[in-house]
């Protein structure tokens, strides 16, 4: 098991008139090798939750184990913890800062104690993993490459210190359709290649989370409401009340049901939905 969360609660500015509850009694487990989606409206507690995983927010209430680290322990080796958890914030390309792509990617591994040679090899491997040409890009400024390339370089900067788990906060935000697809396929490839074993992805795009996550955790008003596989989750009828969108295929299915055409399907892709519609129509006419 890689991440175990038990009865975790968190309040910002406790014991002041400004206290706000961000998380309340959250319990779930992420197993090694899983691709977990984390969804919830803005302000539901997603960011507060993931910032616990690498100790950016100190555990205040409940229990949390991240790989071999018990975060309720008195003394925690935060550096070692953070090396295991690759955290990619929204718009990670805004965090690029070095003169060259290579230097930027080597920054993380060097900080985690790798020698210059090791860091170089590691950066090279990371650049290749994200599908960029090492020789072509290594000496360029991270500020003069395209938007899609910048995001890949930012991901490489995290992969270079070889984390066990990757936490991605809206990795496709702001990209065009083909850029989105490229990043999602890259993430799937990374998981298959064992470059990282466990992935947690936050997204507001339900079509993308339905297509890529194996399990989805839903937060609403600081509480965990659902922890289900996509096909089970999107059968629930209260997601919209939580300010969540639905995959467009589910919207179509629901609209058809309102018109009296009830499809017996848990289809999430356009292909699955078309198959179900065809079956229904042919069944009716035949």
């Amino acid at each position: 098991m890689s991440i175990v969360v038990e009865n975790l609660s968190y309040t910002y500015m406790p014991k002041t008139p400004y206290r706000t509850t961000a998380l309340k009694d959250i319990t779930f487990t992420v197993n090694e090798g899983e691709f977990v989606g984390l969804i919830g409206a803005t302000g539901s507690g997603k960011s507060t939750l993931i910032q616990h995983f690498n100790g950016l927010i100190k555990l205040a209430d409940g229990r949390l184990t991240v790989f071999d680290f018990d975060l309720s322990a008195k003394k925690i080796n935060y550096k070692a913890l953070r090396k295991g958890i690759g955290m990619l914030f929204q718009y990670p390309e805004y965090q690029l800062f070095e003169e060259t792509v290579l230097k930027d990617i080597m920054f993380g591994p060097k900080n985690f104690g790798m020698s210059k040679e090791e860091a170089y090899e590691s950066a090279k491997r990371a650049i290749e993993l994200v599908g960029l040409d090492f020789e072509e890009i290594k000496d360029r400024s991270p500020f003069e490459i395209s938007g899609g390339e910048k995001r890949r370089v930012a991901i490489a900067g995290v992969l270079a210190y070889k984390p066990k788990a990757l936490i991605l906060d809206e990795p496709t935000a702001g990209l065009d359709p083909s850029g989105k697809k490229e990043i999602l396929e890259l993430i799937t490839k990374l998981k298959k290649s064992d470059a990282v074993s466990t992935i947690i992805m936050i997204s507001h795009n339900m079509d993308e989370i339905a297509a890529y996550a194996e399990r989805i955790i839903v937060l609403n008003n600081s509480r965990l409401i659902y922890d289900l596989p996509p096909k089970e989750l999107f059968k629930k009828d209260d997601l919209q009340e939580m300010g969540l969108d639905l995959p467009i295929t589910v919207k179509i299915k629901n609209a058809l049901a309102q018109r009296g055409m009830v499809l017996d399907t848990d289809a999430l892709t356009a292909e699955e939905l078309v198959a179900a519609i065809k079956q229904k129509i042919r069944g009716n006419n035949g």
Partner: peptide
Amino acid sequence: AKLELPVACKISHMLKKDGF
């Protein structure tokens, strides 16, 4: 142009290709 169709549009085209 490396874009996509709106999903509703894509589904209508798929059904049409299947003879509906």
